[in-house]
Design a protein around this nucleic acid. Structure first.
Length: 119
RNA sequence: CGAGCAAGCAAGGAAACGGCCGAAGGUUUGAUACCUUUGGAGGAAAGUCCGGGCUCCACAGGGCAGGAUAGCUGCUAACGGCAGCCGAGGGCGACCUCAGGGCUAGUGCAACAGAAAAGAACCGCUCUUUUUCAAGAGCAAGGGUGAAAAGGCGAGGUAAGAGCUCACCAGAGUGCAGGCGACUGCACUGCUGUGUAAACCCUAUCCGGAGCAACACCAACAGGAGGCAAUGCGGUGGCCCGCCGGGCCUCCGACAGGUGGCUUGACGUCCCGCGGCGACGCAGGACGCAGAUAGAUCGUUUCCAAAUACAGAACCCGGCUUAUAUGCUUGGUCGCAUU
RNA sequence: GCGGGUAUGGUUUAGUGGUAGAACAUCAGCUUCCCAAGCUGAGAGUGUGGGUUCGAUUCCCAUUACCCGCU
């Protein structure tokens, strides 16, 4: 069933992902991902560049909801940090969800094959 | 009907499915997880410009320095806020705006132009002497400069002039009357060197410092090197005193987790009564009550013509300022038309 | 959340009420066969909106943007 999304809260985890993780960039966000524990963990960063507190809250909510709807289809064992870009606050939730889905489609293939070549 | 003025309100709603945070209750567990019920952002939550509560430092003490305010009377816990009134300015008017004390306490500044920017005389005017040039005396009306020129304007007066005299006007002083007061009215006195205090300053009143990352508690921790020192160091803040504490500073290293504070309070909304022009005060009743800690109110679909602006509590409250789509309400004013 | 600061030509900066100055850069001319360097000259600026004042970069208020410190 729907289980609770576990969140990344500690700063050192964010720093590790920024340093060691791989990046996938879409118009609305930048996704950092790295191998983690048994369950998937998610962190969301909304910087002041996005806008006011209302815009930051909306970007965070939209990304969290997109992730929540896709969570069952994502292979486990990854940590994610999603950095919202300035368009995320204005887009509808379906757009963000489609972008996230498209970006994470690479994950299983990347996990099976050992090729680390970036596109 | 048009234009304009003032005051005020709302700040989407409904349904279905799914999701987030808190509280209470229940089941369960080694941690916890699940279920039910219930509550869950704003008029500015914003900017942090003022004021207060609260906490710690001596329950806050003395002095200096510094800062804030600036018509009067009140309201308030307090205020730089608000109300009423006074004065000045603007508008035909409804009404609006004003840091609105003191340059006859002192000091300073007033570029350029101009004779002169504060106890003024360049061009001038008049009289006397003199053939003339010029010299002496008197005057401040006229000229031009400037943002500002020695009260304004007219008449009398004079050698020429001048508040020298007079009427009106502006200001100042004195007296009387009214008002709690700011101030207003009347009379008298020729009393009249400008502006600037958002220049220094003076006067009056007020202000101790820091801020919930305050502060308190629990858990954990490891110390080493160098330097200074009882006329010293810290609490304590710009300085001195006073009080309290007890060695202090620099570098390297280690730790850097949790709980409380945390929301019931000068509380808000509605109804009603009394006092007050009003701000507001007093009294009664009913209802309501976010408390997170990477930080919660949303996502999708449908309907309502459309629902979209500015924007998200972070210790709390009273103001101010700034941003704001759309839709309304009420009361004055002016103009036109009709009766 | 709390506290503090800055804004001046394209860039780095002076300027304590009276015409806003300098350096580098840009442009034009001279010099050179050409370029560079050098010399001469020109253009270009007070974040925004109000207020005080005769007059504001300067003083006061508001606002915008940016920067810094405190876990």
């Amino acid at each position: 069933m729907m289980k609770k999304t576990s969140m990344i809260r500690d700063n050192y985890l964010f720093r590790r992902l920024y340093r060691k993780g791989k990046v996938q960039v879409t118009p609305c966000m930048a996704i950092y991902y790295h191998r983690g524990g048994k369950t998937n963990r998610l962190g969301i960063t909304t910087t002041k560049k996005i806008g006011t507190a209302v815009a930051r809250n909306r970007a965070r909510r939209v990304i969290l909801e997109s992730y929540r709807l896709l969570e069952d289809d994502i292979p486990s064992g990854w940590d994610f940090v999603i950095v919202a870009r300035s368009r995320a606050a204005n887009e509808k939730m379906q757009v963000v969800k489609a972008e996230l889905e498209g970006a994470l489609k690479h994950l299983p293939g990347r996990r099976l094959s050992t090729t680390g070549s970036k596109k």
